[in-house]
Design a protein around this nucleic acid. Structure first.
Length: 706
DNA sequence: GTACGTCAGCAGTAT
DNA sequence: ACTGCTGACGTACCG
């Protein structure tokens, strides 16, 4: 059997690389890496492997490689890929060039940062609390921060000195001021981030960086809140608090309001908090649904609407994917009760925009199927207001209504969500399905095989296995034998050996997101007494998302998800047979790189947070062959602008440890966007090995991989 | 576990 | 000074 699956044209795989390094830090900053296999043409699937070699951030780097690589690269590559791009219209904005990185430590709190205004005087910050560890973030040296605080934006607020005692924390207990937290995070940023943010025009990078910093800030504040809940202090709304801090520090982009496309934000991009929309310049109000340019800030004589958020707060009609019946604002008052809406503020702006015919950005808020408690905001592109009228709402009072029609030629966004919902309900069947479940039940969720591109019937034969085979335990890293956290490891349990191995805090947040870009993650394992649902066993629960293996246009088979995936979320591990290099040659023949994950490759990481310099310490080289047996990971293609990265995960197993490779989302990934990671590079090339042309399509494509 | 009710919150815009 | 299509929690239902 060997059929190869399609001939693919894909070479997706590695490229050559450069090494870069990254580091770690919070959440989203993950960056991956590389390896790769390459594979040329023949296989269809991407091959995959990615090995790692960790390079310390400071080098040495292989020749020709720049030490830093801006992390987030433009996702355009992905977005262009497949499905989404019906018509790439104006959404592509080239990422701004990134300037050379500057030494990290040189950074000081940005005073006047980019967009300006930052005043300092807001009332603010007073939350305090002890920090326990919880999710992530590398510990912050609180005392130190407090000492420095103040250098920041000149705020003068007093910081209290008292420390709250009580919970043990790896960081020590202390009162934490949000500003201090912000200052600490800012200090850890690569200065190049500020260069990017200082550009007057936003870019894919400025948007990405902004969101990453926000994520870090928000989680850190949430963590503090968690620990302080009992003490009745701490930020009650980490999302708002983090947003305010970002605004104050000027960590935002596209701060000037504009009509139409926002540089760096693409149709289909998803967000999980209103503040994210605000920070990237997509929609300024932190709550209101209508954003407009008033007469005072523009030369116009009349206000004009620039964007709206349809999120279920009013009686909108969202049945049609291209038409939106939007309700005006107002008429609702907690104290005064319902009333007629007035033609003022946003309503007036929408009315004027209807006449003017200007484009209005539309953000649709949906309930996120994967996170029932939360909402997802999907940027659905530009619309125009066709007409407006007044009607009686259920309350009996007058409400303004606006009919917005989506401009033609834009990539699908909201429609993708609607389609998935229909497939889920089975009201519409998924076209091109070859196999409803590629795993034959090996995973707890089915993974379908789809081809709506050509006639290929599927990838070459292989046996689906959900995890590693022939595991070779690595020697005892230390004397531990697992934890005894019968009820599951708790963030505040300083005595848990598993937590200790991770530097004193759980590597995952309460929402199971990778809290920090650690070079190695220590999870609980077979010899631990905690239950399977322990927070420190995230990569052991199998697939959580409805993934599908699909036919790409030019890269053979690829992998994507029906569900949106939040940055930092575990996606899958690299399953296969653990082998040695000799075995790889036997299996692989000419394409020994196909379907091979090789930790001895060089990968670099990029990052926005270059502060953590601990070099990855992989106890032993790991080579995984997914040629004959593997899981969905073998279908993940390479990209020089990846949205997924891998991290080594070590699971405690008696006196030994099992080493696995786990994949996490680098950023929020909309449904149906291809999942890709950087395959990395082999240096030097093996005899007979050639560089392969990379087809990732990224603006930052290195061109080849090997 | 789904559905409201409660409530603190923050950037803008307007006064 | 005031508004608003947040977001998280508490309480109430519920099959």
């Amino acid at each position: 059997m060997e059929h190869h699956f399609g001939q693919d044209t894909t070479p997706v795989s590695g490229s050559f690389d450069k090494t870069r390094v990254l580091n770690v830090k919070p959440l989203r900053t993950l960056v991956p890496v590389f390896p790769s296999p390459s594979n040329p043409a023949s296989s269809s699937t991407p091959q995959g492997g990615a090995p790692f070699v960790c390079v310390s951030p400071s080098g040495p780097f292989p020749s020709g490689v720049a030490p830093f690589y801006p992390f987030f690269i433009s996702p355009e590559s992905q977005r262009l890929s497949e499905q989404n791009a019906q018509t790439p219209t104006a959404q592509h904005v080239p990422a701004a060039p990134i300037s050379t990185a500057v030494p990290i430590n040189s950074f000081r709190t940005p005073t006047g940062a980019a967009n300006g205004d930052v005043g300092s005087s807001r009332k603010n910050s007073r939350s305090r609390g002890q920090v326990t560890e919880e999710d992530g973030f590398s510990n912050v040296e609180i005392d130190e921060i407090e000492a420095e605080e103040g250098t920041g934006t000149g705020r003068s607020k007093r910081k209290s000195q008292k420390k709250i005692k009580g919970r043990q924390s790896t960081c020590g207990s202390a009162e934490v001021d949000p500003d201090a937290v912000a200052a600490d995070i800012l200090k850890s940023l690569n200065p190049m981030v500020f260069d990017v943010l200082n550009q007057p025009e936003g870019s894919r990078d400025s948007v990405a960086y902004t969101l990453m910093v926000y994520e870090v800030m928000r989680r850190k504040l949430g963590q503090i809140e968690d620990s302080n809940r009992a003490a009745n202090s701490g930020a009650k709304r980490p999302d708002l608090k983090a947003g305010a801090l970002m605004m104050n520090k000027g960590i935002r982009t596209n701060s000037k309001k504009r009509i139409g496309t926002v540089p760096g934000v693409e149709i289909g991009d998803i967000f999980f908090f209103r503040f994210e929309l605000c920070l990237v310049g997509l929609h300024a109000p932190s709550m209101a649904g209508i954003d407009y340019i008033g007469t005072k800030t523009s030369q116009e004589e009349e206000p004009l609407a620039v964007s709206i958020v349809s999120s279920g707060g009013y009686e909108d009609n969202v049945e049609d994917g291209d038409v939106l019946i939007y309700s005006g604002q107002g008429g609702v008052n907690r104290d005064k009760g319902a009333s007629d809406q007035k033609l003022e503020r946003g309503n007036l702006a929408l009315e004027k925009s209807a006449h003017r015919g200007n484009e209005v950005r539309v953000i649709r808020g949906l309930k996120d199927p994967q996170h029932p408690t939360g909402k997802v905001y999907v940027y659905d592109g530009l619309y125009k207001i066709q007409n407006s009228w007044v009607e009686k709402a259920k309350s009996g009072f007058n409400v303004f209504k606006y009919k917005l029609v989506r401009l033609p030629g834009q990539p699908q966004a909201y429609m993708i969500w609607k389609s998935i919902q229909q497939w889920t309900e089975k009201s519409v069947s998924r076209a091109g399905v070859i196999l409803p479940d590629l795993t034959s039940g090996a995973e707890n969720v089915p993974v379908c095989l789809v081809n709506d591109i050509d006639n290929e019937k599927g990838p070459a034969y292989f046996t689906y296995i959900p995890t590693l085979k022939n595991l070779r335990p690595i020697g005892p890293l230390d004397s531990s034998t697992g934890c005894s956290c019968v009820g599951g490891c708790q963030a505040a349990n300083f005595n848990c050996p598993c937590i200790q191995k991770n530097g004193g805090y759980l590597p995952y947040s309460a929402a199971s997101l990778l809290a920090d870009l650690k070079s190695v993650i220590y999870e609980c394992g077979p010899s631990c007494q905690c239950p399977p649902n322990c927070r420190n066993r995230v990569s052991q629960g199998g697939l959580k998302f409805r993934l599908e293996v699909f036919r790409t246009k030019n890269k053979g088979w690829g992998l994507r998800s029906w569900d949106a995936i939040r940055a930092g979320t575990f996606i899958c591990e690299y399953a296969g047979e653990v082998v040695d290099s000799a075995r790889v040659e036997e299996l692989g023949g000419d394409n020994e790189d196909d379907y091979i994950f090789d930790s001895t490759r060089i990968y670099q990481q990029l990052e926005v947070f270059p502060g953590d310099t601990e070099a990855p310490k992989i106890p032993s080289p790991l080579i995984i062959s997914a040629i004959n047996e593997g899981n969905v990971a073998r279908f993940m293609n390479h990209s020089c602008s990846p949205n997924v990265l891998w991290r080594p995960v070590i699971r405690e197993n008696k006196n030994e440890s099992d080493l696995h490779i786990a994949f996490f989302a680098i950023r929020h990934i909309p449904p149906m966007m291809e999942l890709t990671y950087d395959y990395g590079t082999v240096l030097p090339l093996k005899v007979g090995q050639r560089k392969k042309k990379c087809l990732c399509g990224s603006m930052k494509c290195r061109g080849y991989f090997c």
